[in-house]
């Protein structure tokens, strides 16, 4: 059972090897990471350092080769996946925010957010109520019925944050969420992430190259040659 000292996400010696034999590439060479609930950390590193691989492992879309991954104290990976259904794991326990918002263009703003609770089995009414709460909190409720294509970049990113929070996951993975935004909006998104992390006790890992926002993180993990170093 998780308590207050239990990290939201913990990685122990996580490794990922692509290929085999002479052509094998070790993308992750034993990553250790520990993030508490409500904490927002930065993950910074040059291209090819293993950021995307780490994010994909954390997002349960590729299989790590070795190591451990614990979510809320529960081992979800220990040399092999400990959960049978990775799709359900992603849906219920991991939120995603992408570099581009990647909202579903044929759903309106509300349904983009409500889709996750609906996929989790909530009624349309409850799912939409939850979506509207989040849109309200993120100050985009006035665009609830709009098509995503009619929203500004900042508004789209706020909707994608609302979508990531929709099932109240313990962890959110944000892949360069401020890349397409100017400084003001980028800092605004970081503030929102911090507020949401505090409000929902969600651990947020922000992968970024963005020099403007790096100083805002209390903790930063640097990744280089497949290994992480905490700053």
């Amino acid at each position: 059972m998780a308590d207050n000292t239990t990290p939201a996400i913990e990685l122990r010696g996580l490794r990922k090897r692509y290929g085999s034999g002479d052509t094998a590439v070790d993308a992750l060479k034993g990553v250790d990471m520990r993030i508490a609930p409500g904490e927002v950390v930065g993950l910074v590193g040059p291209s090819g350092s293993g950021k995307s691989t780490l994010l994909k492992c954390l997002g349960a879309v590729i299989d790590p080769t070795a190591g451990q991954m614990l979510l809320g104290g529960e081992a979800i990976f220990d040399e092999v996946w400990k959960v049978k259904d990775l799709r359900t794991l992603r849906r219920d326990r991991i939120g995603f925010v992408f570099q581009a918002p990647y909202l579903i263009p044929f759903l309106d703003v509300t349904d983009n957010v409500a889709l996750l609770p609906m996929l989790a089995g909530k009624s349309n009414k409850d799912a939409r109520r939850r979506a509207l709460e989040l849109l309200e909190a993120l100050d985009v409720a006035h665009r609830a019925k709009a098509s995503p294509s009619l929203l500004s970049g900042g508004e789209q990113q706020r909707v994608s944050i609302a979508r990531a929070l929709a099932n109240n996951p313990p962890i959110i993975l944000a892949d360069e969420p401020t890349a397409p935004l100017d400084s003001e909006r980028a800092l605004g998104v970081v503030k929102i992430l911090n507020d949401m992390a505090q409000q929902h006790q969600t651990a947020i890992i922000v992968v970024t190259h963005d020099e403007k926002i790096i100083p805002t993180f209390k903790r930063i993990y640097h990744i280089r040659d497949g290994k992480t170093y905490e700053e």
Binding site: R87, R90, R91, Y102, L115, L119
Partner: peptide, 16 residues
């Protein structure tokens, strides 16, 4: 394709 990848990532069933 991108939307389908996002749908799958956020937990949409293949059957859906």
């Amino acid at each position: 394709i991108r939307e389908i990848a996002v749908l799958k990532l956020i937990g949409t069933r293949n059957s859906t």
